[in-house]
Design a protein around this nucleic acid. Structure first.
Length: 493
RNA sequence: GGGCGGAUAGCUCAACGGUAGAGCAGUGGCCUUUUAAGCCAUUGGUUCAGGGUUCGAAUCCCUGUCCGCCUACCA
């Protein structure tokens, strides 16, 4: 590849790669190989800027490094900007300062090249902190050009497939992923501080249980049998409750072989937490405290402005509302639960709520809940007292046995975290699993039931969709904007 | 799976049946405090692929590929 560029006379100067390859070959034949060089990054861009006090014109020497993002050549002096992990910093190259030869070298640099520079700080007449470069080193040559400097990357596909270009050009995207990382480490700190223990359980499972979703299948060569990628963490973690690990959590990737949308990615990050001698009320305090801590320590605010301008207020006490009341409110029918199914169906039909007419009565109601209640819960709301048929794995509410001890925390029109008072009666659990499995009895996880029969302490359990939480907390428009490399069809190039 | 929209220079986009253009970046030149720096000159195209209609297609029609949005499926 290099010979081709080396030997050929470049006639087409808009073949940017060829032009840059030629520059590289020229450097190499002059005895300079950028890929064999390194630079010292003694300060980040923000640290360096902070070393020049407000009002001061001159500052100390700094050594910074990063990617060249802008070059403004003005004859015998030039301005440039480099980007490091914290942002941009301006550089000033003057022929007098660096010497004639080095200045000619500088003029051959391209946008996208990675350089290290050193020199004293000064403030320009417009007030910007700038490094007056005395020495610089090219440490990586970019053979490909950066995206357009003003508009950046607009092609959604390229943003996802070549995320590095998006990260280089979009500060918003860069910040969003940095925030995600800080949210995740804050969650770990918070749970660890509450005496929880982080564990890792198998991703590869003979039977993927703990939720009703289609799994991804794979083949386990050594055992010569079909395996699945996990669809939930629940069953492994409850075995650990039986084993005496009373406060456990796992923060890991889960896989569901289902469609892609603004809210769904087939592989997504899930947090599941189990706490012995607690229940769904305890989980409510836990999630409230966790999100409150993230607001305080990561975001510095409890008011989130969404991409469309909507403000989500996470301060104060969050609303707690019963499922039935929310459905009554949404339909405007105080007598909703007394209506015969035919009238419920008629209401759905008249109000554009799609539902299966052959479904059970509670399923018709749940269609209303999903399409008219959940997606409208923008401000934080704990929905409680869900009908028992919807969640067979939770304990019944003692004084209202048609409902279960459960909440679903909804914010931003999405279910962020469901939590249960976990079922620990092994006989009830078997019955529930059998009902759920229907005819496919062989799918019941006997090993899990065996564990339960040894006695599991009463416990609260909760699942948190980390991607959705990050969507909420960063105000992002889509799940694809909070996953670095979202699932894509293979590039057929 | 269904519906709608899109694919044109390296990037962002125009041209909507009649010679494919602009800005950015690239190349050459001028310019010692600029910041979307400026000025002069200049290179760069299988208009996603394949077929059709037409004197003539980036433009109209068909098929395919890929992408986006909506929708469906989804404890």
């Amino acid at each position: 590849m290099s010979e081709e560029a080396q030997s050929q006379e470049i006639t087409n100067t808009s073949d940017l790669r060829a032009v840059r390859l030629k520059k590289l070959e020229e450097l190499r034949s002059a005895g300079y190989d950028p890929f064999k060089m390194n630079a010292e990054q003694a300060q980040t861009s923000t640290q360096a800027r902070a070393m020049l006090p407000e009002g001061e014109h001159d500052g100390p020497e700094v050594k910074v490094a990063g990617r060249l993002m802008a070059i403004r050549l003005m004859g015998k002096a030039s301005f440039a900007k480099i980007l490091d992990r914290e942002g941009l910093i301006q550089l000033y190259f003057k022929k007098q300062d660096v010497g004639d030869e080095a200045y000619e070298f500088f003029k051959k640099l391209d946008l996208g090249d990675i350089i290290g520079v050193e020199g004293p700080l000064f403030r320009t007449k417009t007030g910007e902190e700038t490094v007056r470069v005395t020495k610089f080193t090219l440490v990586s040559k970019a053979l490909r050009p950066l995206p357009e400097k003003w508009h950046g990357l607009a092609d959604q596909e390229q943003i996802y497939r070549q995320r590095y270009l998006d990260l280089i050009t979009s500060e918003e995207s860069r910040k969003r992923f940095q925030t995600r990382s800080r949210i995740v480490s804050c969650i770990r700190r918070y749970l660890d501080g509450q005496g929880f223990m982080e564990v890792e359980t198998p991703v590869l499972q003979a039977e993927a249980g703990g939720a009703a979703a289609r799994p991804f299948k794979t083949h386990f060569n050594a055992l010569d049998c079909e395996f699945n990628l996990r669809i939930a963490l629940e069953l492994s973690l409850k075995r650990l409750l039986v084993g005496g690990f009373e406060r456990v959590y796992e923060l890991g990737r889960t896989f569901r072989n289902e469609g892609l949308s603004r809210r769904h990615n087939p592989e997504f990050t899930m947090l599941e937490v189990y706490q012995a001698y607690s229940d769904f009320n305890g989980m409510m305090k836990l999630i409230r405290g966790m999100i409150g801590t993230i607001c305080e320590e990561v975001l510095g605010t409890d008011k989130i402005t969404r991409y469309d301008g909507t403000v989500i207020d996470l301060s104060g006490e969050w609303r707690v509302a019963k499922y039935r009341d929310l459905v009554r409110e949404a339909t405007g029918r105080a007598d909703w639960f007394e209506l015969p199914k035919a009238e419920k169906l008629a209401w759905c039909d008249a109000n554009g709520v799609e539902t299966d007419p052959k479904g059970e009565d509670f399923e018709v109601t749940n269609s209303v809940y999903e399409k008219r209640v959940e997606c409208n819960l923008i401000q934080p709301t704990f929905v409680t007292h869900l009908p028992r048929q919807l969640i067979p794995l939770a304990k019944l509410v003692a004084d209202d046995p048609e409902t279960v001890e459960v909440f679903e925390l909804c914010i931003n029109g999405q279910e962020i975290a469901p939590a249960y008072s976990e079922q620990n009666d092994p006989l009830e659990q078997r019955r529930a699993l059998e009902i759920q499995a229907g005819e496919e009895i062989q799918k019941i996880d006997e090993d899990f039931l065996l564990a339960l029969e040894h006695g599991m302490p009463p416990a609260g359990g909760m699942g948190v969709g980390i991607d959705r939480l990050v969507i909420l907390l960063t105000g992002a428009p889509s799940i694809r904007d909070v996953i670095l490399f979202p699932s894509m069809r293979p590039d057929k190039a």
